[in-house]
C-alpha cells in the first residue's frame, strides 16, 4: 500500500458528518455541562470531614467539618434537593449557614 493511498484527506463533508453525529448524540445523553452546573451549596448535610472544597494545601475548608451534619459546612448537591433531602434526626439542609451541630 503506498503512502498516498493510506493518507486520509479530509473534506468539509466528512467533518460535517462527524460534527453532526457528535452534536446530536450529546443532546441525547444530556450530560451537558449546563446540566452538570445545576448544583447548589447545601449547609448542614455533610458527614464529618466530607464537606466540599478538599483541594490541597491552604484551602481552609478542605474536609474540615468536625461533626456529622455540621451546620456551617456545606456540600454541593443537585439543585433543588438541598432543603428537601432526608437527613438523620429530622434535620434539613439549608442554603444559608446554620447554627445547629457546631463542633464544641
Amino acid at each position: 500500500m503506498s503512502n498516498t493511498s493510506t493518507r486520509r484527506v479530509f473534506t468539509a463533508a466528512m467533518l460535517a458528518t462527524a460534527v453532526t453525529a457528535a452534536i446530536s448524540a450529546s443532546a441525547v445523553t444530556s450530560s451537558s455541562p449546563a446540566a452538570a452546573a445545576e448544583k447548589e451549596k447545601c449547609f448542614g448535610v455533610a458527614m464529618a470531614g466530607k464537606n466540599d472544597c478538599a483541594a490541597g494545601a491552604g484551602t481552609t475548608c478542605a474536609g474540615t467539618s468536625k461533626v456529622d451534619f455540621q451546620g456551617n459546612s456545606w456540600k454541593y448537591v443537585e439543585k433543588g434537593t438541598c432543603t428537601s433531602m432526608m437527613i438523620d434526626g429530622g434535620r434539613k439542609g439549608s442554603l444559608e449557614p446554620l447554627t445547629r451541630d457546631l463542633p464544641a
Binding site: 486520509r8 479530509f10 467533518l15 458528518t17 462527524a18 460534527v19 453525529a21 457528535a22 452534536i23 448524540a25 450529546s26 445523553t29 450530560s31 451537558s32 455541562p33
Partner: peptide, 29 residues
C-alpha cells in the same frame, strides 16, 4: 485547525472515532 487535528488523530490510529471524540470534547468541557 479542526481538519488538521482530525488528520493527526487518524495518523495516530486508523480506529480513531472522530465523532465520539468531538462529543467527549464538548461534554468534558
Amino acid at each position: 485547525q479542526l481538519a488538521e487535528a482530525a488528520e493527526r488523530g487518524f495518523a495516530a490510529g486508523e480506529s480513531f472515532d472522530l465523532a465520539g471524540t468531538i462529543r467527549l470534547m464538548v461534554e468534558a468541557g
